[in-house]
Computed example of a mutant assay.
Amino acid sequence: MILASKSPRRKEILEGFGFKLEILTSSIEEVSDEEGLLEQIMDISRKKSLEISKIKKESYVLSADTVVVLDGHILGKPKDEDEAFYMLNSLSARQHKVLTAYTIMNSQKGIDFTSYDSTEVCFKELTEEEIRWYISTGEPMDKAGAYGIQGKGAVLIKKIEGDFFNVMGFPISKFYDDLKQLNLSIDELNKTVEVERC
């Protein structure tokens, strides 16, 4: 299976559950003309798969897009430590949502499926000192919402409702259920198709 993502966390989750992956990242601009937030991330996820699937028609291609949403606004990756502080301070003692859209596609077999999962995350009330400490670890700087639940950021979390792996970057349980609905198995996705080239 081709993973159209350079996220080390997605790769780690999928390989941990037995998927054999080839990494081919998409170069699309991550923008969408769709109106709703959920529709936008589903559209972006599908575009990522579509770009790779056009050149790898015989392969299963998986893509995803994860966003952290607070009060209807997306919190992306912080540009600097000041923005990381602002994000973490905004999340303090608040509940927010993590949305991941994902697409599994195989052009040759006519498979084009996009879905999503949503997890509610509640932060503890954080002191300025705790936020500064967390930023000093460097962990927030490459993560949406400026935190990683699977790392040192775990100490900031009061509770979650939903899939832990979704917050980490990929909702493996929902994806597994969807594969069953599509009559696909991990073994099937791990098959590599050798195409003769002339």
Rank of each mutant, 00 (worst) to 15 (best):
P8L: 04
V67D: 02
T127A: 06
S45T: 08
I186P: 04
K56T: 05
H96E: 00
Y147G: 02
R46N: 15
N166P: 12
T127P: 13
Q181K: 15
E130D: 13
L99R: 03
T119A: 10
K159H: 12
E161D: 12
Y134L: 01
S49W: 02
L75P: 02
H96A: 12
D65M: 06
E15K: 14
D71P: 06
D65C: 01
S92F: 00
I131L: 06
L21N: 14
D33A: 10
L50K: 12
K54T: 05
M42K: 15
T103D: 09
H73W: 07
F165P: 02
L189F: 03
V121K: 01
E51W: 03
G16H: 09
L24A: 11
I111V: 15
G169D: 11
I104C: 10
T127G: 07
S26Y: 03
Q181R: 14
I41M: 09
K20W: 03
D82W: 00
I157C: 11
G36P: 00
D177N: 13
S136C: 08
I74F: 05
E161A: 09
S26V: 11
G18L: 04
L37R: 09
N106L: 08
K20A: 11
L38T: 14
L3Q: 01
K152P: 06
G145D: 12
A146S: 15
D43A: 02
N166C: 10
L37D: 02
Y134M: 04
R46V: 00
Y176H: 14
V193T: 14
V167L: 03
I104W: 05
Y116K: 05
A154D: 07
E161F: 08
K6F: 01
K124N: 14
I131G: 09
L75H: 04
R9F: 12
G148V: 00
M105T: 13
T137I: 07
Q108N: 13
F175M: 05
L38W: 08
K57W: 02
I55T: 15
G169H: 12
E35F: 06
Y147D: 13
K158S: 15
S59D: 15
L88H: 09
L24N: 07
K174D: 12
A101Q: 01
E83K: 07
